[in-house]
Design a protein around this nucleic acid. Structure first.
Length: 495
RNA sequence: GGCGAUAUGGUGUAACUGGUUAACACGUCGCCCUCUCAAGGCGAAGAGUUCGGGUUCGAGCCCCGAUAUCGCUACCA
């Protein structure tokens, strides 16, 4: 039996996602249960969505949760580099291999041409697929295109006939007919691989035995299986885990739920509680039924509460339930409360001092109010919003005099978009917000006051931009989103 | 639209894998405790297992069909 090796492969495109934490937990447990290795690989092949600070945040978040990897970009390992942007030469060579063996081909269409093709197919009610125009280009035609200096991509040559099946360890055989599998781009015109190529090549080279990933990958798995075959490699086992959902059952999204692990850390969730909650998602742990040997509530509650070590001991992958579990913040909060109550007073104090009352946090807040308070206790009056789970201003507070409620909510959404796209620094934030105000004809005063009301719940606060920076991007964005969603709902109810 | 996956109270899960009135937790409601609010204790409502057929003495568990939901359908992952 070869050593079990699993991996998570997050993309550094933003804040670390709870879905990534969920997959990390599952992979971690799987590895620990089998004396295997848990690998972290950074999939940074999409240059357009790359966020430089993201990678470090992924490291920090996973470590905060206690899910340490055995191999990865920052800890090394025998199969590095573990950052895909540092492996482009490997992918290029493998693409050449496929080209040479006839399993792939060069395709010279531009993005615009492909886009036009897709649109006309859609208009004709056809399936939007690559039409295979360059599947059988002659060497002369290829040379001609190259002479033109036309960029190309490498595509997978999916057999026209037949079907591809694979075994999903949780669901059994899954089959796709080839006419439903597109000639996937493997190597982009910028020389970077797509997920599909990089993923298969790396999983093979890194000797991954079990691919435990989210369900959204099921429909691209046939492409991966075809790639393994084209290379003459054995495919790993595939485990597709259910997708975390919003309360309305749609795939979990930031609009409807806080999804940044940073948010949970900065809002004062305990890592053990978040982990425990994630472990509850999708079954796997023997919770749910009544506890053995007793039926008091206290006893039954115990079954819902378990540590990472207990998960390693008891988590059963064959028991995973396949329905997409709703990430229910209400239950997470209850669970977190359970964990807080179990702390000794000294531990509770320590937890406070390490998080929302850390010297670092207080030290950044204090200068914002020093000139504004007359007593030390005034600090509390001035800064309460930094320490609160949520605030919600009333309409009288947040709607400017000459604006309607609808206009105000719409503008808040614009502010949110700007905040999302902007670095949280004074130099970046202030001009970005002012620019938005000018474009939308909102005075600086109304503009900033609205934001102030949303974040602080009040019309009086320490300086706004500086406060936002200290409060943090993750919590700021979430507070904005919660505000917008809540106000939209209220407005809809009134109608 | 096409393809795939999934389906147990509002939510997360249980149900010895065909065998008594479908269980536990969260949430909700009520009562107790209490200066308040939590916590805690006690209790209640809430699903007949998406729907329709079948197989069987017996089905949430098996079969067939339908429906709904979710995912994929990018030179994103």
């Amino acid at each position: 039996m070869p050593e079990i090796r699993v991996r998570i492969a997050p993309s550094p495109t933003g804040d670390p996602h709870v879905g990534t934490a969920y997959m990390a937990l599952l992979n971690y447990i799987y590895a620990r249960q089998r004396a295997g290795r848990f690998i972290l690989r950074i999939e940074d092949t999409d240059r357009t969505r790359f966020v430089p600070t993201s990678e470090q945040m992924i490291f920090d978040s996973l470590r905060w949760l206690g899910l340490q990897w055995d191999e990865g970009p920052d800890v090394g390992g025998p199969f590095g580099p573990y950052r895909q942007s540092e492996r482009t030469e490997i992918y290029r060579k493998h693409a050449e291999l496929l080209l040479a063996s006839g399993h792939a081909y060069r395709s010279f269409e531009t993005a615009e041409e492909l886009d036009a093709m897709r649109k006309s197919q859609l208009a004709a009610k056809m399936q939007p697929r690559y039409n295979g125009a360059h599947r059988e280009l002659s060497p002369e035609q290829i040379a001609a295109y190259e002479a033109e200096g036309r960029p190309s991509v490498v595509r997978l040559k999916v057999p026209a006939e037949g079907e591809t099946s694979f075994r999903d360890e949780l669901r059994g055989a899954v089959t796709f007919t080839h006419n439903n599998v597109d000639d996937q781009v493997l190597l982009k015109s910028d020389g970077f691989p797509t997920y599909h190529l990089a993923n298969v090549v790396d999983d093979h080279l890194m000797q991954i035995t079990d691919v435990i990933r989210a369900e959204e990958w099921i429909s691209s798995t046939p492409k991966h299986v075809l790639l393994y075959r084209a290379f003459g490699w054995d495919a790993p086992r595939f485990w597709h885990m259910p997708l975390l959902r919003n309360l309305d059952k749609s795939k979990i999204s930031k609009r409807k739920n806080p999804v940044s692990v940073i948010y949970y850390r900065e809002s004062g969730y305990l890592p053990a509680a978040l982990l425990n909650f994630l472990g509850l998602m999708g079954g796997g742990m023997p919770a749910g039924g009544s506890a053995e040997g007793g039926d008091t509530r206290a006893k039954n509650v115990e079954a819902e509460i378990f540590s990472l070590a207990q998960m390693e001991e008891k988590f059963d992958f064959s028991k995973i339930s396949l329905g997409g579990p709703v990430f229910d913040l209400t239950k997470l909060k209850w669970l977190n409360g359970e964990y807080i109550r179990r702390l000794t007073p000294a531990e509770f104090l320590a937890a406070l001092r390490e998080t929302i009352f850390s010297d670092d946090y207080l030290g950044r807040i204090a200068p914002l109010v020093q000139t504004r308070v007359e007593t030390l206790a005034g600090f509390g009056d001035m800064t309460d919003f930094f320490f609160r789970d949520d605030v919600m201003p009333t309409q009288e507070v947040f709607v400017p005099k000459k604006k309607t409620i609808e206009e105000t909510i719409a503008f808040a959404a614009e502010q949110l978009a700007v905040l999302e796209a902007t670095d949280f620094t004074t130099e970046a934030l202030e001009p970005a917000l002012k620019k938005l105000g000018e474009e939308k004809q909102w005075s600086v005063k109304d503009n900033f006051m609205l934001l102030r009301a949303i974040i602080t719940g009040s019309t009086a606060s320490p300086p706004l931009i500086e406060s936002l920076i200290v409060f943090g991007k993750a919590r700021t964005l979430d507070r904005m989103r919660r505000f917008i969603e809540t106000q939209k709902k209220l407005a809809a109810q009134k109608r």
